[in-house]
Design a protein around this nucleic acid. Sequence first.
DNA 1: GTCACCTTAGAAG
DNA 2: CTTCTAAGGTGAC
Length: 167
Amino acid sequence: MKTNLIELTVSTPNGKFIARYSEKGLAELNFPGAKAPVAPKRSEGGPVPSNISKWHRATQSALEKILAGGEPRELPPLDWAGATDFQKSVWRQLLKISGGKTRSYGEIARAIGKPKAVRAVGGACGANPIPVLVPCHRVLAANNKLGGFSGGLDWKRQLLAKEGVKF
DNA sequence: GTCACCTTAGAAG
DNA sequence: CTTCTAAGGTGAC
């Protein structure tokens, strides 16, 4: 079923991110500049539920923290409904990467018990609906090569630079 | 069913 | 050192 997502924006020094929440938590986060598939239509529909309002505050502060090169104090609940088990496993590993550190696709693959699924890990990262908070940008190719990034390789470089990662 | 993807280790030239 | 190949998971066509 098409869950009614509530769309809110997060203003940062880097631009306005777009966050979408379901009843269960943050379901999606988009980079500034990404074309908005739907118009923001939440205010007329009704008030934003208080729990979502609270999550949004957490999202905002976590995002700002990361963009400043730090680690978020706390994250809002993430709604991974629709994701496969494989993807959830990968994203769980990503959440364990602390600021300024990086892992390779191979390491992630190994961590979830499928050392040969390195390309699948790349696929899961690309399918990540919540970039930045789920730090898919901290995953580099082997030998500290940048690798790719569907949301714009530019963001990956910038985020890593803020965290002091060199390569 | 086929193909492309945010990959990588290893074998061959 | 450079080039080529095979291998996982998933979604688009």
